[in-house]
Nucleic acid binder design. Structure first.
Lengths: 153, 153
DNA sequence: CGCTTGCTTGGAGTGCACTCCAACGTTCTA
DNA sequence: TAGAACGTTGGAGTGCACTCCAAGCAAGCG
């Protein structure tokens, strides 16, 4: 009951590059409206515009009337950004990373360092969560025991 | 290099109840000022007052002039609350839990359910973090490879 | 063509969890 | 007993990450 479930560790080798449809449309016909991207990415249209404004998106292509048309590349970037958000990385740091990407290949080292720091933060956070699990289980057991005792009475 | 370090799983049996000084002062002489509690708990004095105001602390004892005097019991509660914070539980939910505690033993079931939901959330979050780790490692490896390639050149 | 739905903008608003302020009273140390 | 350091309050302010608004074009359908 108290046993800590081992988190199923995904196979480390990335084997999903071909197994799921990476892009709804093939390159060349990849011009998505903001609401399509919203549905695909899980981010609201508001958030997509805001990401662009703060520099977390490279400038998005526009139709002849000025409406946004996102590409497959934009979709990939948003997927990566969403992963970074899940790590708990602050938006300001993600903007910093986006700037480094814009600056070109000479920023590879800085980008690697940023990601390695993020990785360390994730490891730390996982250890914290593991600790809280022990406390939670301890309390849950206490209440479960109390229930059993009262049922016997 | 890409291998996911297994998070050291703490022994589940709680063996720390006696091994570290649980309370700086023995019961009976346990009257701590707010700044002492701040130092002991890692929470600021501001936050301690705020916790009391919103009902996340039971009402704290006062000196004859109205200054707060915290007890060992208060310290224990704060330690538990800090653990709950680390789970990512919103403050509003922690206040709900505190209310249940104030209402007495007939809320054991509700408290257990609240903690079990929190436990599920923690497990989910850990899985998310594990996923981000795979993406992070993938990118880090890419940059490391690029560096090795440029060094050979 | 008209209608509905969608997209545009700058700027303002929201919710959370603190964090700080002013103006004062208390406690400790020399 | 002076002075520094600490404590009190209600209420206002901060930083983050969105989230929404109004007013006005744009796009797709019968």
């Amino acid at each position: 009951m108290t046993v800590i479930e081992s988190i199923p560790v995904k196979s480390t080798v990335v084997d999903l590059c071909k197994t799921r449809p990476l892009h709804p449309r093939p390159d060349g016909q990849d011009r998505y409206t903001i609401s399509e991207v919203s549905a695909l990415s899980g981010l609201t249209a508001h958030t997509l515009r805001w990401y662009e404004r703060i520099g977390l998106m490279p400038h998005v292509d526009r139709s002849h009337t000025g409406q946004r048309r996102f590409t497959n590349k934009d979709l990939d970037w948003l997927a990566f950004v969403s992963k970074l958000r899940l790590t708990g990385m602050p938006v300001a740091d993600m903007v910093r990373y986006a700037e480094l990407v814009r600056e070109g290949e000479h920023t590879f080292d800085a980008r690697q360092e940023l990601l390695e720091q993020t990785r360390r933060d994730v490891i730390t956070r996982m250890a914290e969560l593991q600790d809280t699990l022990a406390v939670l289980d301890h309390k849950i057991d206490f209440y479960a025991d109390a229930r059993r005792a009262s049922e016997r009475a």
